[in-house]
């Protein structure tokens, strides 16, 4: 496989040609925040808007999950503009997220907490207003796991696994805009849907939205 030379934050690396920058950087040990990225997806979602970087010669920050590496690419993962965008995207996600980490079964295993640690971002709202004014009901209908929509970040990982890996087709994105959510046909509880309770979707959830029941006890 051919390789290209790139520079990330002053360090030089050799990475596989044709690879998306996000994966190349992660393989080199450089952390870039991300939630929706999935190496196996045909076309990147680019929906979480956390993996911004700046590339020399580009006039605006770009999402690293969509940007292919090229020979001589010079990348900066931390600039004033990148930090500002990442902070705002992160705060926006928090503004619609149940923020009681102590009570969350995924405490210490959550990607949001990792981003907060890596980028020194607070895990509470200081600037924006909380949008999660009414808590939505938690779905604990299955024997294996629970679904807490109040913790969902809409990364789409579970839906992709459901459709493309286990090929069950129980869940999908429903509604539009602010009301967009992961749900079932007719909004029925998971146990009443086509869900086989295989638990594969739970394994890919980066936050505490889908959690195995054994963890919640």
């Amino acid at each position: 496989m051919s390789k290209v030379n790139i520079t990330i934050d002053g360090q030089q690396y050799q990475v596989p040609a044709g690879e998306k920058l996000l994966w190349a950087a992660l393989d080199c040990g450089v952390y870039i925040p991300h939630l929706c990225a999935n190496k196996d997806k045909e076309r990147p979602d680019a929906s979480c808007r956390l993996c911004f970087v700046e590339i020399e010669g580009f006039d605006a920050p770009v999402t690293s999950c969509t940007q292919e590496v090229f020979e001589g690419m010079v990348v900066k993962t931390r600039t004033a503009r990148v930090d500002r965008l990442v902070q705002t995207a992160f705060e926006l996600l928090l503004s619609n997220h149940k923020l009681r980490c102590g009570k969350c079964p995924q405490n210490r295993q959550c990607e949001l907490q990792k981003i907060s640690r890596e980028r020194k971002l607070k895990l509470k709202l200081t600037r924006l207003r909380p949008l999660l004014t009414e808590e939505k009901a938690v779905d604990d209908s299955t024997d294996v796991f629970i679904y807490d929509p109040n913790r969902c970040v809409l990364c789409g990982q579970c839906i992709w696994v459901d459709h493309k890996v286990v090929e069950v087709g129980a869940i999908g994105f429903i509604n539009r805009g602010f009301k967009r959510k992961m749900g079932t046909f007719g909004d029925v509880p998971l146990a009443e849907s086509r869900c086989t309770q295989c638990g594969e979707c739970v394994k890919v959830c980066p936050v505490g939205a889908l959690v195995f029941k054994e963890k919640t006890e």
């Binding site: 979602d45 680019a46 929906s47 979480c48 808007r49 956390l50 705002t88 995207a89 926006l92 996600l93 503004s95 619609n96 924006l128 207003r129 949008l131 809409l154 994105f173 509604n175 539009r176 805009g177 602010f178 009301k179 967009r180």
Partner: peptide
């Protein structure tokens, strides 16, 4: 459409 964070939550804010 609600796909990306900025538009879904930013415009609401």
């Amino acid at each position: 459409c609600g796909k990306c964070t900025f538009c879904r939550l930013g415009t609401k804010q």
